[in-house]
Amino acid sequence: MPGLLELGAAELETPAYHAPNRWMVDRSSMTIGFPRGDDPSSGTWQTLNYTADQGKPRLIVPV
């Protein structure tokens, strides 16, 4: 696995910010998230929900 990964994006919009998190979820067996609040549009919740959509376990630790 590379030490540094650059995914690249044509435009820096929402999908570009979610891509690294999805990349990590795709390569892990579990996700631990520390969301602040319950805003479903936050990056943390997007990642935790993506984890659930992949059928992988997630640990949610609210802060």
Rank of each mutant, 00 (worst) to 15 (best):
D39V: 13
L59G: 09
G37S: 12
D26F: 04
L48G: 01
L7R: 02
I60M: 12
A19L: 09
L7Q: 01
T14C: 07
Q54D: 11
P35N: 03
A19V: 05
V63T: 00
V63D: 00
T44G: 08
A19C: 04
G55P: 10
N21T: 01
I60K: 09
W23K: 03
P20D: 09
T31F: 10
A9W: 07
T31S: 15
E6D: 02
T14Q: 13
A10H: 04
P62H: 06
L59W: 12
V25E: 00
V61N: 00
S29I: 03
L4K: 06
S28A: 14
D26L: 07
L59H: 02
Q54T: 06
S29G: 09
H18P: 00
T14A: 15
P62S: 01
G55D: 10
N49L: 12
V25I: 14
S28T: 11
A9F: 04
T14F: 09
R22I: 05
E13I: 15
T47E: 07
A10W: 00
L12S: 09
T47K: 05
M1R: 05
Q54N: 11
E13T: 15
T14E: 15
L7H: 02
A19K: 09
K56V: 06
M24K: 01
G37T: 13
L4E: 03
G43C: 10
G33S: 08
R58V: 08
T51D: 06
G33P: 01
V61C: 08
T51I: 09
P15A: 12
L5R: 07
F34Q: 00
I60R: 13
P15W: 12
V63R: 00
R27Q: 06
E13R: 15
Y17V: 08
P35L: 10
I32T: 05
T51H: 04
P40A: 11
D38W: 15
D39Y: 09
V61Q: 03
T31P: 06
T44D: 02
G55K: 12
P35I: 09
S41L: 11
T47M: 07
T44F: 06
T31I: 11
A52H: 11
A9S: 13
S41M: 14
I60C: 11
D53K: 14
W45I: 12
L59Y: 08
Y17L: 15
L59N: 06
L59C: 13
V61K: 01
A9P: 02
G55I: 05
H18L: 15
Y17A: 09
S28D: 02
K56R: 15
V61I: 13
Y17G: 02
T14W: 12
E6K: 02
G37C: 10
G8L: 02
I60Y: 04
T31G: 05
R36S: 06
M24W: 02
G37R: 12
G8F: 03
M1L: 03
D38I: 14
P62G: 02
K56W: 01
L5D: 00
E6S: 00
G37K: 12
D39S: 11
N49T: 11
T51A: 10
